[in-house]
Computed example of a mutant assay.
Amino acid sequence: MIPFLVFCSFLIPINAWAAVTPHLHSDLSMRLLHGVCTLVLIPLLWSLWLRRHDLSRWPALSLTLFAVVMVVVNSWIAGMGMGVEFGWLDHVMLACIEVALIAYFLLGPDPAEA
């Protein structure tokens, strides 16, 4: 789990940089970044689904909705390519959800307690 969280922590500054400099990356690198960011959200959604009865309802629901929206939007952006209006805002939201992902796995309930 630690290598996965370290990898996710590297995506935070990458997305922050992509938000600040939206036109300094190629179409391929942009599609790759959005695709990878979509894939790292799948373990979060899977864990939220498995632990749905053990988690507080409203925080878990909020995090789940945010993650689902980010998966849908980023899948669309990865397929669509460059030229998405307000793409910089999506990178800001990606950085936020990656912070939430790391916090969930580091500070959330211990799966061994279930």
Rank of each mutant, 00 (worst) to 15 (best):
C96G: 11
S56W: 01
V20M: 11
L5S: 12
P3K: 01
T21N: 10
P111I: 06
I77H: 06
L61R: 14
I12N: 10
H23Y: 14
N15E: 02
R31N: 03
H34A: 00
L5I: 06
L28S: 10
A19F: 06
A60S: 15
V84H: 06
L50P: 09
L45P: 05
V68C: 09
A19E: 04
M70G: 02
G81D: 03
L48Q: 08
P43I: 05
G81K: 14
A114C: 05
G83D: 06
P13Q: 08
L41T: 00
A100S: 12
D27A: 15
S56I: 08
R51S: 07
L33V: 09
I77L: 03
P109Q: 12
I2C: 06
I14T: 07
C37A: 05
G35V: 01
P13G: 11
R52D: 05
L101Y: 07
A60D: 03
D110K: 12
V73W: 07
A67Q: 07
W49M: 09
A78P: 01
M70F: 01
F4Y: 15
V69F: 12
Y104W: 13
M1T: 12
H34I: 00
E113M: 10
L11S: 04
I77A: 13
F7V: 09
V72D: 01
H34M: 02
L5E: 10
T64K: 08
I77C: 03
D90N: 15
G81P: 11
V99I: 15
S62W: 13
V73E: 05
T64L: 01
V69G: 04
A95K: 06
V68Y: 02
W49F: 15
L41C: 04
L89T: 11
V71G: 12
W88H: 13
L50C: 13
L106C: 14
V84A: 08
